[in-house]
Structure formats: C-alpha cells, structure tokens
C-alpha cells in the first residue's frame, strides 16, 4: 500500500463523510427533529410482523 494510495483513500473517505454530513444537515431542515438519535419515537411506526 503506497503512501499516495493511502492519501487518496483517506481523502476519499473524508469526502464521503462530508457529503453524508451535508445531506444529513439538509434532511434535518425538511424534518427538524433529532433523527431518532435521542430515542424520540417516530411519528409513524412500521407495523409489527404478523403473529401466528
């Protein structure tokens, strides 16, 4: 693993993280809640599996 490859891989990971954080920030503007990070219940919960 060359130094250049390591640098490129690291920068790609940084770009990926930055893109994800920016997308997350914009998503929050449309629906400003904690994104369930804090354990707040979602407004609509998915249905439970059918019981036998």
């Amino acid at each position: 693993m060359t130094t250049e490859f390591q640098t490129l891989s690291a920068l790609a990971l940084v770009a990926l993280a930055a893109t994800w954080l920016v997308r997350r920030a914009f998503a929050k503007k449309q629906n400003p809640d904690c994104g369930s990070d804090c354990g707040c219940a979602p407004k609509k919960v998915s249905s439970a599996p059918r019981r036998p």
Binding site: M1, T2, T3, F5, Q6, T7, S9, A10, L11, L13
Partner: peptide, 10 residues
C-alpha cells in the same frame, strides 16, 4: 498491520 501513511493515521 498497515504501513505509515494518511489512511493509517485516519
């Protein structure tokens, strides 16, 4: 396991 470099540092 990894050689010295940015990825290892990250």
């Amino acid at each position: 396991a990894m050689p010295d470099g940015d990825l290892r540092d990250l």
